[in-house]
């Protein structure tokens, strides 16, 4: 009996579901090369460099040829600023949550202490409550604390405490920690204490043992936890939406704001870049995990 035998029904259903998953993404990317500027209709691919005739009459200069909308994207200061914010937030929150989450995973897997059950439970909270609840909770916290501090210290004008990059970063660290911890914890479960004991037995102190033995062994887990945190941060909309302030707009927030007003192929170009970046990251995670296994 062939263990990999699947019925025709399953095969057809699979093809259809994959089609459902990919059609929107493909349409999105195709429209990034649209020669119509309103993006309502597909006016055909942009095929030439230099002056382009758009929507019948408008002439647009495009030195980038088919990548016209990508170049426009590059020239868009708002997009560039949002990209900078998004990356800043993602990098800082990833680095912080990886360090904190790895420490937590070690604590939960290697030690017993009084607060252990409570800690483990608290890590599951973000998974079982809707993101919006966490988002508005943090918003309430910051606004109440800021209102109090601004009043107490008579802060006014630019010195007033407001929502901005720091509040977004702190919130991203908070929701990334549980994911990093769970991933690293799963990795730690795979090997028992004896490796660390062996290192100490051979004369390595706690610190040397960590860096020479524990860390290299959990590194694949730490890296995939980090990549997970990075993608979560890049992708996040809800928490950012409630904790962001003027000047700290991220790409998802920018796109959302744009979609409520106007639609241009620039958004498609942005989406195409995004898909490419995510594709690379996911590929990297897969490679790491298959190497670890």
């Amino acid at each position: 009996m062939n263990p990999y035998r699947r019925s025709l029904f399953i095969k057809i259903a699979t093809v259809l579901v994959y089609a459902f998953l990919y059609t929107p993404i493909i349409v999105l990317i195709v429209f990034a090369f649209n020669s119509s500027r309103t993006n309502v209709l597909f006016g055909g691919f942009i095929t030439q460099f230099g002056p382009l005739v758009m929507d019948g009459s408008t002439v647009v200069q495009s030195p980038c040829g088919p990548f016209h909308w990508f170049c426009e994207l590059g020239k868009n200061a708002e997009v560039m600023n949002a990209t900078k914010n998004t990356l800043t937030i993602a990098i800082i929150s990833t680095l912080s949550s990886v360090v904190i989450g790895t420490m937590a995973a070690l604590a939960l897997q290697r030690y017993s202490f009084k607060l252990k059950p409570f800690s483990q439970l608290s890590l599951y909270i973000p998974i079982v409550i809707p993101e919006i609840v966490m988002g508005i909770g943090i918003l309430v916290l910051f606004s109440q604390v800021f209102t109090f501090l601004n009043g107490a210290f008579n802060l006014a004008g630019d010195s007033r405490l407001t929502l901005g990059l720091p509040t977004v970063i702190v919130s991203h660290i908070a929701f990334s920690i549980p994911f990093v911890t769970l991933v690293v914890q799963a990795r730690l479960q795979g090997f028992d204490k004896s490796y660390e004991e062996a290192a100490m037995d051979l004369g390595a102190n706690e610190l040397t043992t960590f860096w020479r033995v524990t860390f290299p062994m959990i590194l694949p887990g730490v890296l995939s936890g980090g990549l997970l945190a990075f993608t979560l941060s890049l992708d996040d909309f809800v928490i950012t939406f409630f904790t962001t302030g003027p000047g700290s707009t991220t790409l998802p927030i920018y796109v959302y704001g744009l979609l409520r007003r106007i639609i241009t192929p620039q958004v498609n170009a942005l989406s195409a870049v995004w898909v490419l970046v995510i594709f690379s990251i996911v590929l990297l995670i897969q490679k790491l995990q298959s190497r670890a296994a």
């Binding site: 998953l21 929107p24 796109v255 979609l259 958004v267 995510i278 996911v282």
Partner: peptide
């Protein structure tokens, strides 16, 4: 992997794709 790519493509962008459709 083919399931993960749409999963990690940005949430807002995916909604946008359906707006276009």
């Amino acid at each position: 992997f083919m399931v993960l790519v749409p999963l990690w493509t940005n949430f807002v962008i995916r909604v946008y794709a359906w707006m276009m459709l």
